[in-house]
């Protein structure tokens, strides 16, 4: 969802070709942006929880205790209650932070590897542009849900396949963002200069062009993380998500929906957790865009 915003803006992104003190400047701007700070804070908070999961979670998130099932919030020994197998909900939410971050990062990384490569090639080589863009068109026109269904039917359900499915969804839009930036940078003086100096295409692409696409890639990826986590939740709803008993927020919110009358916290709490992390990534992405884009810094 969020990709449209950055995809749109990216054409206008003004990239400063000053490596030194650039990061400091970005950080300074980011700090001034309150939403971004909040986003960064949320993400750091979730990341810390994820890292410390084994230390801070009160129970083993997979340990079943059918005598203690469906306890409500505030129950003795289980602050956030238990799920349908009597597993501690707080512990599962804590461990879920790990999986949500893993799904988010890995799938975006997957999308980046292919998307950036396709984008670079298609932006730089006019000959390849036509064919790559047609492939991208096909990928875009192909319904994402169906693609995920197909991948999961072929490879089976499980976290890795969710990552692949969600990752493939990211490829076409990432490729477009990168292509757009490359088309713009390609015409810059320093690229022309490098060409004149006889640098190889490979060097130009990876030494001159790619580093200057980084800011738009970072902005876009941050927002894409949010989309990826939501997509994983949607896959869980369709029965294609993380396999049980894995504690993943999307899967928890989705299986919890069957208990919406009996024990609403089973779906509400993971749902709020998703909102929190998605909000975090979106705000951070917004902030980064503002920080990296002088045109918009006052808004």
């Amino acid at each position: 969802m969020a990709e449209s915003i950055s995809a749109l803006k990216n054409g206008e992104v003004e990239i400063e070709y000053k490596k030194s003190s650039q990061i400091k400047e970005i950080w300074r701007r980011l700090k001034r942006n309150r939403t971004a700070v909040v986003g960064l804070f949320i993400i750091s908070f979730i990341a810390i929880i994820a890292l410390l999961a084994p230390v801070i979670s009160p129970y083993n998130p997979y340990e079943q205790n059918l005598n203690q099932r469906l306890l409500g919030i505030g129950a003795r020994g289980h602050i956030l209650g238990t799920d349908e197998y009597g597993r501690d909900l707080l512990s599962r939410l804590i461990y879920g932070a790990r999986l949500s971050l893993i799904v988010g990062f890995c799938s975006v990384a997957f999308g980046l590897v292919f998307g950036v490569l396709l984008g670079l090639l298609s932006g730089y080589y006019k000959r390849l542009d036509g064919i790559i863009m047609r492939i991208i068109d096909i990928l875009l026109a192909f319904p994402g849900v169906l693609l995920a269904l197909a991948i999961v039917s072929i490879l089976g359900t499980g976290i890795v396949n969710v990552i692949i499915a969600v990752g493939i969804w990211s490829i076409p839009t990432i490729a477009r963002v990168v292509r757009g930036t490359v088309l713009y940078i390609k015409e810059m003086d320093y690229v022309t200069a490098a060409k004149a100096l006889g640098e190889s295409d490979f060097m130009i692409l990876f030494r001159e062009i790619l580093p200057n696409c980084i800011s738009s890639i970072v902005v876009y990826s941050t927002m894409r993380l949010a989309t990826a986590i939501l997509s994983a939740a949607t896959l869980s709803f369709l029965g294609l998500g993380a396999q049980p008993p894995v504690a993943e927020w999307g899967a928890m919110a989705s299986t919890g929906r069957n208990f919406i009358f009996q024990a609403p916290h089973l779906t509400l709490l993971p749902g709020f957790a998703i909102i929190l992390i998605v909000y975090g990534f979106n705000s951070l992405g917004d902030g980064l865009r503002d920080a990296l884009d002088p045109n918009l810094k006052n808004v």
Partner: peptide, 12 residues
């Protein structure tokens, strides 16, 4: 739903 619920139980 039925089997998704049983499977983790059998596993445990």
């Amino acid at each position: 739903d039925t089997y998704n619920k049983i499977a983790p139980f059998i596993q445990a």
